[in-house]
Each structure stands twice: as C-alpha cells, then as structure tokens.
C-alpha cells in the first residue's frame, strides 16, 4: 500500500560527509556491483563499449565548484543516492503499490513484480534517486542494501550498505537516526548535518555534512618579502624590445 507509515520504529539512513569525500567514485562502483549481482533486476548498461554508453546507477557522484565572496574557490564532491525521505513523494504517487516505505526501518523500496514502469515516482523525486532500467522496464532505486544489512551469512563488518563498506575516505556512515546515541545522530548534531532541498517538504532521512571552513593562509613563506627579485629590468634584446614597444 502506497500510504506512508505514520512513524517508523527505526530510521535507517546515511550520513555523507562532503568535507571528507574525495570524489573517487568507489561507492558508485561497489553499489552497481552489489545491486547488479544480488536483489532484484540487474542494473543494465546500454551500449557500454560503444560511442554512447549509458546505464542504470543507484548512486552518482557530482562535483561542484563553490566560490565564496572572498578567498579561493572550493571543489566539493557530492555523492547522491536515495535519501529515504520520511514524507517520500515517490511512494504516494505510485498507482500499483509497488513503491513502499517500511514501517520497521523506514527503508523505501520497490516491489519489482508490481511495478508497471510508468515512471511517475521518478518524476515525483526531486533528487533523481530513481532510475528506470531500460532493459527490465522497472524502477530501480537504492535499497540501503537491505540484502546486506540484515544478512547473517555475511561477517558482521560487512552488514552495512556496499557504498559505506567500500568508501576509502570514511565519508559515508550508516545507522539509525531514531537513536540519539547512534554514530549518525551524533555526527549530524556535531557537524550541522543538513537536508537537501528542504523546501520540497520531503523530510529526507539522509543527512549531508557541510565542508568545514578552509584554513586561512596569510603568507606562504615569511622570508619571501626579504628576498630581492633577481631581475628587475630586462636587458639586452628584451630590454631594447621593451623600450621600443614603449615608444610606439
């Protein structure tokens, strides 16, 4: 049923640290790998070795340049996947009941055998978190690796989403936002975790930690001002050229 649950017992989600992310795209690859080989329809590619490759991804990393009023521009790598919103607009628009939000842990999932591939949920999502698979004709989205996090066949260390497990920089964190003592709740509180597009009213579970302010560097080398420039005026041919051009 595509009515949203009033509350969820747990509120599982991710914290993504924009200060730490190095933009290596390892999370993109591990996500594609795990979710192609496991739960649901594989994430297909079209023309993968041809002139115009494209494919289904549940996680994509953008890069943005941010130019402050004063100081140097910053480059921010920006991984984006489903934010498992509390007021998920993608769920309520679904005509078949294929899309649902789980009452026990808040994960937003698609029952692929009920999906008619109308695409309306992708229209309703402001984040571009849902992609229709061109080969299967069903909607694909991040499952928060529901087939890993409860999977007792895996060693305990691996029972986190594939993107979190693989991140070499430690920029992705997984946990329960309903528990104020959890790692993700504390990180969000300490670092001012933010919502994306809060004005859309989706109430996303996933939080983004903003980049920390950059250090101020006044002078690179305190001895530099005491050094005389080696050449003050050009000599020889360059000197003649300089004077000649001045006269014109």
């Amino acid at each position: 049923m595509t009515m949203l649950p009033e509350t969820t017992t747990r509120k599982l989600g991710l914290v993504i640290d924009l200060d730490t992310c190095v933009g290596c795209h390892a999370c993109v690859i591990s996500c594609k790998g795990w979710n192609t080989e496991n739960y649901g329809a594989p994430l297909s590619d079209q023309d993968p070795y041809g002139a115009n490759p494209s494919g289904t991804f549940l996680n994509r990393v953008h890069s943005y340049e941010v130019q402050p009023e004063v100081g140097a521009a910053q480059l921010v790598h920006f991984p984006k996947s489903c934010l498992h919103c509390e007021d998920a607009p993608c769920v309520t628009v679904c005509p078949t009941g294929a899309s649902y939000k789980r009452a026990e842990d808040g994960i937003v999932l698609v029952n692929e055998s009920d999906c008619i591939g109308c695409g309306l949920c992708a229209w309703a999502c402001p984040y571009g978190a849902r992609e229709m698979d061109a080969a299967e004709g069903v909607m694909k989205k991040c499952t928060l690796c529901v087939d890993r996090i409860y999977n007792e066949n895996l060693p305990e260390i691996d029972r986190v989403p594939a993107c979190v497990r693989t991140c070499p920089a430690g920029a992705r964190h997984f946990g329960d936002f309903n528990d104020p003592e959890s790692h993700v709740s504390q990180l969000t509180a300490e670092r001012g975790g933010m919502d994306l597009m809060p004005e859309q009213g989706t109430n996303p579970v996933n939080k983004y930690l903003p980049p920390r302010p950059k250090d101020e560097i006044d002078q690179i080398d305190i001895l530099a001002p005491f050094l005389e420039p080696v050449v003050q005026e050009p000599k020889g041919f360059l000197g003649w050229l300089d004077k000649a051009l001045e006269k014109i």
């Binding site: 994509r60 990393v61 953008h62 890069s63 943005y64 340049e65 941010v66 521009a73 910053q74 920006f78």
Partner: peptide, 15 residues
Amino acid sequence: TGLGKIGRVRAFEPP
C-alpha cells in the same frame, strides 16, 4: 546542494 551558505555554486563535473 546545501552549499549556498559557502558561496556561489557551479556544476563542475557531472557524475
């Protein structure tokens, strides 16, 4: 992006 508080945001590179 939530980055507006730092400065002007420009898309640098698509995914």
